[in-house]
Amino acid sequence: MSLILRLIMKGNSKIKLYDTRTFTAKFMPAAEIREMLKGDPDRFFIVRVEEMHRHVDRPVPPSRATNHTIMYLTAGKLFMKVGSETYTIHKDEMLIVAAGQIFSFEEYNTTKFNRGFLFHFNDTFLPGKFGKAPFVQEFGFLKPFSEPRLQLDKEGTRYAGQLLKRLHADYSRNGLANGALLQSYLLALLCEMARMYQPQSPATASAALAGEFRRLVQEYHNTKQQVTDYAALLHVTANHLNKVVKAATGKSPTRFIDEAILLEAKVLLGQTTLPVGEVAAAVGIEDASYFSRLFKKYEGMTPVGYRKKMGLR
């Protein structure tokens, strides 16, 4: 497990992460999928979006994966949730789900027109220094909570398309037998992505403060659940933080904290068999009754009802 992923999971050892075969067996159990995943798919695999997409026949609840997943479209439109935000990509765009990030397809998109590639890899599959932390952090789009969308320019579209076709062709024929060749293609692709990746800089000091607050919530929501906790970390008053975050995002800091807690809870409800009381404790809420009320306030159903709705237990 990468250093980045260990930092994300710090303080919550009860969260189970899906490996590739467990995830596909649960949500895409078709034999054709198993045949496409060759060798050790937790290290690396690549498939065509259209080949995998047609086997997704149900919503995928909030989940975590052990590795990085990147989708590139050559046609169509794809949307999914990364964290609590819904993102949409179109032709010549990529959607990046970094290792440990929460993702979901709670509203299943039944479109059959998507074309492109989906590839999935572990940090350790990268060659040389790039397979060891902190060098992987040179790829800003693989850092936790980074902007997950990447629009390719004309040159990048040409190069990325060529590299993905080569990766897919060799993997489809040989699995991981030509590991050094796959690693070289993958590294070249990631370097090309890094060239085009330009995370947005906050336009104002207020936007920067709101952005840093949201990052801290993702990191500390299991242990810090009051606005005053984050105000202290940011060296501002709680009143100032409330005003800035609400003005910049339209949401109160309390709502961001609650949503992060409940998103984590939904992962635990889906990926473990923990009783509701233990799920509550794992996300930092000792009072199970309060947790159920909070869950129902935002989700319109109890945690048990959520499990039933999603067909989880």
Rank of each mutant, 00 (worst) to 15 (best):
M1N: 07
L3Q: 14
I4N: 14
I8N: 08
S13N: 08
K14G: 00
I15D: 04
T20E: 07
F27P: 06
M28C: 09
P29N: 05
L37A: 05
D42Q: 08
R43C: 04
R48Q: 08
V56M: 06
V60D: 00
T66G: 15
T66Y: 13
T66M: 15
I70F: 01
Y72N: 10
G76D: 00
K81N: 14
G83T: 02
G83M: 04
E85M: 12
I89Q: 01
M94S: 11
V97R: 08
A99E: 09
Q101C: 08
Q101A: 14
F105L: 11
E106F: 02
E107I: 10
Y108D: 09
Y108W: 13
K112E: 05
G116E: 00
H120F: 11
P127M: 01
F130V: 04
P134M: 05
F135A: 13
E138Q: 14
R149F: 01
E155S: 12
E155F: 07
T157C: 15
A160K: 09
G161M: 09
R166I: 07
L167I: 00
R173N: 02
N174M: 05
G175A: 00
L176P: 03
N178A: 04
L186R: 04
A188I: 03
L189T: 03
L190R: 00
C191F: 13
A194I: 08
A194D: 14
A205D: 11
A205G: 11
S206R: 14
A207I: 00
L209K: 10
A210E: 02
R214E: 09
R214S: 11
Q218M: 10
Y220R: 10
T223G: 08
Q225G: 09
Q225A: 09
T228F: 05
L241F: 11
V244Y: 04
G250P: 04
K251G: 03
R255W: 13
F256R: 12
I257Q: 07
D258I: 09
E259K: 14
L268F: 03
G270T: 04
Q271C: 08
T273Q: 13
P275E: 01
Y290R: 15
L294W: 14
K296N: 12
G300A: 07
T302N: 09
V304K: 12
R307H: 05
K308T: 12
R313L: 15
R313K: 15
